[in-house]
């Protein structure tokens, strides 16, 4: 008896050890993949970094190549965020504090569906519907507000402008921001909401006193998540934006800077040699930027979680 017991116990221990090792390995693999992304991109980007300027597409070196793309990336993403973040907060408020409670979950799913639409479909839709629909408005902006550099024009006749790219991006990041903010708003302690109402606050005053302050860091974190997503969005921008290179903040013309992601999608299939390395180098820049933004976003969101957990 003692013998078989010992063997079975050691088999148990071996089984446990193998299983624990496997799952720890899987966890560590996550970190390895992230490190791997950075490493392999760096390895493939390196030839472009050390290549003579003249060999880089454009002939003026890698910095001059990437900088306008980075500018376009940041411009489109920030614009998208400026449009999407306030809307997302309003939508999250509607779902959590205005809509009938029985409907709330269903309405939430409806907004989530926006995230389910593939970006290629947004690209097609942006080109076929949204871009033409903005031509009139762009013309109006140009004629009436043309003195603002953003609307310096001349307006694009196809509507494939930075403004439309930002609008499409805004639609795409809206559900991501809404989901996080909605979650936070739902967690506002009922106790605090009732305290405000019992003081004689109206519904909106209650929200301003309790729900918004409580959700503040979630709003910030969620916006940064949305920013990260907008920075990296590829196909919709590649299809919608008419690009000419260069740096410009003109939102309604047909000559726009491209974005890093869109530029890769457009040029990669046709590229060979050092051009591929250059594109990968730009991808590395994009990876670094989005990684930083996402890490910051998560730190902000997690800190809020700790804070509300301690309450």
């Amino acid at each position: 008896m003692p013998v078989s017991e010992r063997t079975s116990r050691s088999r148990v221990r071996a089984g446990d050890r193998v299983f624990a090792g496997l799952s720890t390995g899987a966890g560590a693999l996550i970190l390895a993949v992230l490190a791997g992304v950075a490493t392999f991109l760096l390895v493939e980007a390196w030839p472009a970094v050390v290549a003579p300027s003249a060999d880089i597409p454009g002939g003026q070196g890698i910095t001059v190549y990437i900088w306008p793309l980075l500018f376009g990336t940041v411009l489109s993403a920030v614009l998208a965020l400026l449009i999407a973040a306030p809307l997302a907060v309003a939508i999250a408020l509607f779902i959590t504090h205005y809509a009938p409670r029985r409907l709330a979950q269903g309405l939430g799913y409806l907004i989530d569906l926006l995230a389910a639409v593939p970006s290629i479909v947004y690209g097609l839709w942006g080109l076929a519907v949204l871009a033409p629909a903005t031509v009139e408005a762009s013309t109006w902006l140009y004629q009436n507000l043309g003195w603002i550099p953003l609307f310096a024009g001349p307006p694009s006749s196809t509507g494939r402008t930075m403004l439309v790219a930002a609008l499409v991006l805004a639609v795409m990041v809206l559900p991501i921001i809404t989901a996080v903010v909605r979650e936070a708003f739902l967690q506002t302690p009922r106790l605090h909401e009732e305290a405000a109402l019992a003081l004689g606050a109206t519904h909106w005053e209650m929200i301003r006193m309790t729900v918004l302050p409580f959700g503040r860091s979630a709003i910030i974190g969620a916006s940064m998540l949305g920013l990260g997503r907008a920075l990296g969005e590829t196909m919709a921008v590649a299809m919608v934006l008419s690009v000419s290179g260069g740096v410009s903040i003109n939102l309604i013309s047909r000559s726009n800077p491209s974005t890093i992601a869109a530029n890769i999608a457009l040029d990669f299939p046709e590229s060979t040699g050092i051009a591929v390395n250059t594109l990968i180098a730009s991808g590395l820049v994009l990876f670094a930027v989005t990684l930083a933004v996402n890490m910051l976003a998560r730190v902000v969101i997690n800190r809020r979680r700790d804070f509300s957990g301690a309450n």
Binding site: P189, L191, E194, A195, A196, A198, L199, G200, P213
Partner: peptide, 21 residues
């Protein structure tokens, strides 16, 4: 009802000061 509540104060079971204020 909003005016009613500003005339009739209420104190709850668990202390609930606004945490952000």
């Amino acid at each position: 009802p909003v005016t009613v509540r500003s005339h009739i104060g209420m104190v709850f079971q668990r202390p609930n000061p606004f945490p952000t204020m």
